[in-house]
Nucleic acid binder design. Structure first.
Lengths: 337, 337
DNA sequence: CTGAAAGCGCTTACAG
DNA sequence: CTGAAAGCGCTTACAG
């Protein structure tokens, strides 16, 4: 009943452990007859070599860690799926976990990765992550690729959407539709995505010589509760903005619920463009304009970057920004149209 | 630069490996002074014990495998998140992967789990899974909990939503709203969820003495393409059904897109109730009636079942069905209302 | 082509 | 309380 070992197989096949090992590892020059006996024994005993023993002896490093904030989040779920699919295809092991943006949880997984002797790491750093923590890992020769969020004070390969451009596209589109009083519900400024999307909003406004009223920037911190409050704040302004750019999907949903409850008419009373595509954004009435990230590609390319870095530890740092795509729908069109 | 070992630490702290090991494992009765020296050395060398060596020696089995069809799928993403959160909380290791409903991929992960010497397995078996494959694993003393999909010919603990009841609730609701000509777009009959949801539809109809026209049962096989065709088939009937029960989210989305393109009026021309809650089902016009699964709980309770089984290998098999919840919204209300 | 032996990094009786 | 030694399940020079 208990797992059989290489010795069991050797005994069963009446050969040495060395021979069994050679068969398992497809070493050439094994007598076909012995090989056959070994194969039969393996089959009979349902033998499966222990990965622990194997990696211990060979000092194997064929697995990488992959840390995102959440699996159930639409974007990160897709990112993770893209990563796992790619790892599977490349026959590489992957250890996919979620931090819940909790420093302690992140640390426990990082320690686990070290104990596991991973060949490298892809991580979306939790807010407030101490660069030193990642640096220490890097210093031990374990490459790290930053995903989605940059981390100042930590030099490493990075891959993410072009958040500045994405936000810029959304706001430029609103301007081109004739809106000038454009507000934003911004994400948390503790992570680079929040900062960059706000920057994109700012530069688009500046490029068109539109002055931003301080009150037009409200922080929803990427979550529904804060976003609800942020939206209320906008509605209470003396002069309500004509359009809003909302910096992620969760905050957009929160706003849309409020819009429905208040009977606000989109886009006539208020135009909306949101960052992150929603599964059925096109089925809403009106259909929602969104900035779509290539989430699965992000996951895949993060691993590519990492594998490349493992192979060439000394190549220059690479910063990859993947363009976003704008899905223009009714929620952001000009009133006249 | 390379990972340090217990010997390095022993040398650095000028103690034996045994002592280092004792410190790491919190064995009592270690001289406080030696302990301190070891701790300092560990810190200085960034030492992290190798999990491979550890498990090899101790024959540890503190990790379980977890296999779902897809991470990016809404339901299974939530299931996985629930499972990982629970494992984290219980300080247990979890190896979460997705099969893409592909037998070969499933097999590779299963083999990986065996090599990893997991303590147990939770699996949503891919269609056409040979019960024998799982049975062989079970026979090696590795408990398996089936999740979401039952597998005939394989006796094991099972946890899933009460799919019959869920479908039954949806159809009963439609009947109570006054509909009698109710069709269904059914899921794949290769998995128990598809079979059960169709059964729920059938029994609800039978209980109200409503005869089902054979054409009212169309198979969308849980995917968008087949669902689109299934819906077209329903629209081409001599007498179009008044209401449809759709057996999962992907198929519902496909139908809703067709409904929009054709300008069909919901619920006046056609009432709709769908299995699986959608993130913004309440924001659609009209809002969509859905059957909601307790996805995160499913993931958590699957692990609970497994841990319990690991502890009590011989307790009787447990079949757990978690009730679903109906979210009644406008899409399924009676025309008069 | 094959087997005996050493060793990977740990843990744990065992003796002191 | 501490250290030397054996051993977990493998792989791989090495000798034959």
């Amino acid at each position: 009943m208990n797992k059989s070992t290489i010795s069991d197989v050797a005994r069963e096949a009446d050969v040495s452990k060395s021979t069994v090992s050679r068969v398992i590892n497809d070493v050439p020059n094994v007598d076909p007859e012995l090989r056959e006996r070994v194969l039969v024994a393996i089959d009979k005993l349902d033998y499966q070599p222990s990965r622990a023993a194997r990696t211990l002896k060979k000092d194997l490093k064929d697995v990488v860690g992959f840390l995102v904030p959440s699996i159930s989040d639409t974007i990160f779920g897709d990112v993770m799926q893209g990563a796992e699919d790619y790892a599977y295809e490349k026959q590489m092991g992957i250890l996919p976990y979620s931090t819940a943006d909790d420093l302690e949880r992140q640390q426990r997984y990082l320690d686990g990765f070290l104990a596991e002797r991973v060949a490298g790491l892809v991580v979306v750093p939790a807010p407030q992550t101490d660069p030193q923590v990642l640096h220490t890992i890097q210093a031990q020769g374990i490459p790290i690729v930053l995903l989605d969020r940059k981390l100042t004070g930590f030099e490493a390969d990075y891959i993410g959407s072009d958040n500045i451009q994405g936000a810029h596209d959304a706001v430029t589109h609103l301007i081109e539709e004739g809106y000038t009083r454009i507000a934003t519900i911004a994400g948390s400024q503790q992570v680079s995505t929040g900062v960059d999307r706000l920057t994109g909003y700012r530069t688009a406004m500046a490029e068109h010589n539109l002055t931003i009223q301080p009150d037009w920037i409200q922080f929803g911190n990427f979550n529904k509760q804060d976003s609800y409050q942020a939206f209320q704040n906008l509605l209470q302004l003396d002069k309500i903005p004509e359009a809003i750019f909302i910096a992620n999907d969760a905050m957009t949903i929160s706003v849309l619920r409020a819009v429905r409850d208040l009977g606000i008419c989109i886009p006539d009373d208020l135009a909306i463009a949101g960052f992150d595509e929603l599964l059925i954004a096109d089925l809403l009435t009106p259909a929602l304009t969104t900035i779509e990230q290539a989430a699965e590609s992000l996951g895949q390319e993060a691993l590519q970057l990492l594998f490349d870095r493992i192979q060439y530890p000394n190549r220059p740092t690479r910063i990859v920004q993947i363009p976003t795509k704008i899905n223009i729908r009714e929620s952001s069109l000009s009133k006249s149209s």
